[in-house]
């Protein structure tokens, strides 16, 4: 087991070297890809392991962004304090709302999380301290290498957290909840506590990503911070890579970000259309994500795809 982790060291080294090797465009693409991968990885903690599909993690992203922006733009505090404020806001909201909303299951949970993000967006659009509809402008720092390394560090931390979860008692409790929540409670899993812990953990990493992004682009507004398309992207990337796995969300985020980047240079409508088609094909042929493809294909060959269809068709 240990040597597989060592094999990751060169990958991490190359990723960390990008600011010195690549050009400005690559670094900017890298920051975006690393941050969206962090969002996917955070979503994975709750969505992938417990099966609670949130379409509202952008609520935490927005809180992280606004926490950072308010601290820096309104109170003239350092970036680090802003990040911390955003994370605290996200934890408080997750802890307060988690109790009632985590009792809901399936699509009900999904839609309520969507509603929470929309409600927070409306709330911040009416707050004076958050600049109302206009938003806030943060102090400018032209240091993309710093933002890049920060994003990489955050993604690495989120991935280490997920790797720990996957091997821990906590993680197997989350998986038991996903597989059958009533049966999990009957064997003694305190589902409420574990789900809440997963939500809070996801909220922290998501808020930190939001804070870094806000400082990087130096401008935030309600629509861009509580952005539903962001929710959709983190869900799709996780599902595409492999939910409930350690590296699936990261792989999914990198692959889809790259495809999207290439296509978006041409016509954006065609890129979106292609994105939709990828989702359709992935759900049909790769329901367990890209990460399952290697093992499945080795075992079954081309029949792997047919077996996936056979299992889910009527």
């Amino acid at each position: 087991m240990k040597w597989r982790w060592l094999a990751l060291a060169p990958v991490l080294a190359v990723l960390a070297g990008v600011p010195w090797l690549g050009d400005a465009v690559l670094i900017q693409f890298g920051i975006n890809a690393l941050l969206i991968a962090t969002l996917a990885q955070s979503w994975n903690i709750l969505g992938g392991f417990t099966g609670y599909v949130s379409f509202g993690n952008s609520a935490f992203y927005g809180l992280g962004a606004y926490g950072t922006a308010i601290a820096m733009a309104q109170w003239h505090q350092p970036f680090w304090l802003g990040l911390a404020l955003g994370a605290v806001l996200a934890v408080v909201v997750a802890a307060v709302l988690g109790g009632p909303i985590l009792r809901l299951r399936g699509p009900y949970f999904a839609i309520v999380t969507l509603g929470i993000s929309a409600a927070l967006s409306a709330l911040f659009a009416n707050l004076d301290i958050a600049g109302k509809n206009i938003g806030l402008i943060l102090p400018l720092t032209r240091d993309d290498a710093m933002f890049y390394e920060l994003s990489l560090g955050l993604l690495a931390a989120a991935t280490v957290a997920v790797a720990w979860i996957a091997r821990s008692r906590f993680g197997i409790a989350l998986i038991a909840i996903r597989e059958n929540e009533d049966a999990a409670a009957a064997v003694g899993v305190d589902a409420t506590r574990y789900k809440l812990a997963a939500l809070i953990l996801a909220a922290v990493f998501t808020a930190l990503a939001g804070g870094i992004h806000a400082y990087w682009i130096t401008f935030i507004d309600p629509a861009g911070s509580f952005d539903t398309t962001l929710d959709v992207r983190m869900v799709i990337m996780t599902m595409f890579g492999g939910p409930g796995t350690v590296f699936g969300p990261v792989i999914g985020a990198f692959v889809l970000s790259a495809i999207y980047e290439v296509l978006a240079n041409g016509i954006s409508t065609a890129a979106a259309l292609f994105f939709g088609l990828v989702i359709l094909l992935a759900v049909i042929f790769l329901p367990k994500g890209l990460i399952d493809l290697g093992g499945g294909f080795r075992a079954l060959g081309w029949r792997y795809f047919l077996a996936n269809i056979e299992r889910h068709r009527l």
Binding site: G47, G51, V53, G106, P107, A110, V232, V235, I236, M239, P243, A272, L273, F275, G276, L277, V278, I279, L280, V283, I284, P287, I309, R311, H312, R313, L314
Partner: peptide, 21 residues
């Protein structure tokens, strides 16, 4: 029909993809 017996998340994702297309 190809995915109608999938987990909830997959059917949600599929119809979302359909919406995009």
């Amino acid at each position: 029909n190809l995915i109608v017996r999938s987990a909830l998340l997959n059917t949600l994702l599929f119809t979302f993809g359909l919406n995009v297309v």
